[in-house]
């Protein structure tokens, strides 16, 4: 599951561009710092590849394994 920590996002869009599953898009509203943070389009598109988490320069996006998949 994708979690976005909007406090730290500077709106560079690297996560959106490099997401292989197209799970993210640019938000239409600015965050508290005035940047267009990413928004999750569809959590089901996320394969937990962690590309966004590893590429993020600001620790603003990360993946948490779902409770279901952790059990299985």
């Amino acid at each position: 599951m994708i979690i976005i920590d909007e406090r730290y996002c500077k709106g560079c869009s690297i996560c959106i561009h490099f997401c292989p599953g197209k799970a993210l898009e640019v938000s239409k509203e600015v965050n508290s710092r005035g940047f267009y943070a990413p928004k999750v389009v569809d959590q089901a598109e996320c394969t937990s590849c962690k590309q966004c988490e590893l590429y993020c320069p600001d620790f603003a996006i990360f993946i948490v394994e779902d409770a279901e998949s952790a059990d299985g």
Binding site: R7, K10, S13, I14, Y55, C56, P57, D58, F59
Partner: peptide, 23 residues
């Protein structure tokens, strides 16, 4: 591992320095 109270970093949006810190 980070001093949360001073995040986000001072680097410009899209700068690679943050990615190096992440790595």
């Amino acid at each position: 591992y980070l001093r949360e109270e001073i995040l986000p970093t001072t680097h410009c949006p899209g700068c690679g320095c943050g990615q190096v810190l992440n790595a």
